[in-house]
């Protein structure tokens, strides 16, 4: 399993309806994106992290491991905002407004990444995918998405095994071998995935498959009170940020 999905299955918030978590983290995400970065971003990050490390009991180490990739992208991308190119004096010059702009983008993105990741850390995809039809996505698409999700882990496992076999035969010893091994790994995966899909098809047909893949979705109760409670923190953050802005403007 992948680390984030595994953490989501262990999360105490797993039993909460995805809508509740969507309202909570989605509301915070909208606050981070739509409100002025200072003070909205730090407030959003603080609320999201407090909820995650408190009641949702997300492991900080696992969270950091998942977050450093996107944060690295944000930091490299922000570096480009520090300089100005093609100015009248110098071709490349430090932009005096650059640090403020870079800090704003980094703050906004970091807060947004927290919201996205913590939603993923508390909601297994298997709970989320069957409910996507409710937001108006075509049923065929949702079925294909769920099918891809189920086949993903077997395909990942095949890739891991083929990779281990190749590495044991010095398949990744130098760049040339690496290129050849990566190509063969892809080809073998393609052949195996198609073969497995065809065998699965035959197996399903023997069990009366008519084109519908019905699976049991765990019933989670959606209480209006829970949705309201989830909507409260984002609304409070928005009110606090707007209040601060108005106070600063006076």
């Amino acid at each position: 399993m992948l680390a984030i999905d595994a953490a989501a299955y262990r999360s105490p918030w797993r039993r909460l309806h995805p809508t509740v978590k969507g309202v909570f983290f989605g509301g915070l995400l909208v606050c981070a994106l739509a409100l002025p970065t200072w003070p909205a971003a730090p407030l959003v990050a603080a609320v999201a992290l407090a909820a995650a490390f408190g009641p949702a009991r997300v492991s900080p180490a696992a969270f950091l491991r998942a977050a450093w990739g996107p944060l690295l992208f944000v930091l490299t991308g922000s570096l480009a905002l520090l300089v100005s190119v093609g100015g009248p004096q110098q071709i490349v010059a430090l932009d005096p407004a650059g640090p403020a702009r870079a800090a704003e983008v980094t703050g906004r993105a970091a807060a947004a990444i927290c919201c996205q990741l913590l939603f993923a850390f508390t909601t297994p995809l298997a709970d989320l995918l069957p409910r996507l039809t409710r937001i108006g996505l075509p049923a065929v698409l949702v079925e294909v998405v769920a099918l891809i999700y189920r086949m993903l882990f077997v395909t990942l496992d095949s890739a891991r095994r083929i990779h281990a076999g190749q590495a044991g035969r010095l398949g990744y010893a130098n760049r040339r071998a690496w290129t050849r091994s990566a190509g063969s790994l892809g080809a073998a995966l393609f052949v195996r995935s198609y073969d497995r899909a065809r065998r699965m098809q035959r197996g399903l047909e023997c069990r009366g498959y008519t084109g519908e893949l019905t699976v049991l979705v765990e019933e989670l109760s959606l209480r209006p009170a829970a949705v309201l409670a989830a909507a409260a923190p984002p609304l409070l953050v928005a009110a606090a940020a707007v209040n601060y802005q108005l106070g600063a403007g006076l």
Binding site: E143, V144, L147, M151, V154, T179, A182, L189, S193, T210
Partner: peptide
């Protein structure tokens, strides 16, 4: 062709794993 569904699923899983492979 209802049989195409499983092949599309397999193709999607293949695309995901392929785009996550390490290359030097």
């Amino acid at each position: 062709d209802p049989d195409a569904k499983l092949l599309i699923g397999a193709s999607g899983a293949f695309c995901f794993v392929l785009s996550a492979l390490k290359i030097p």
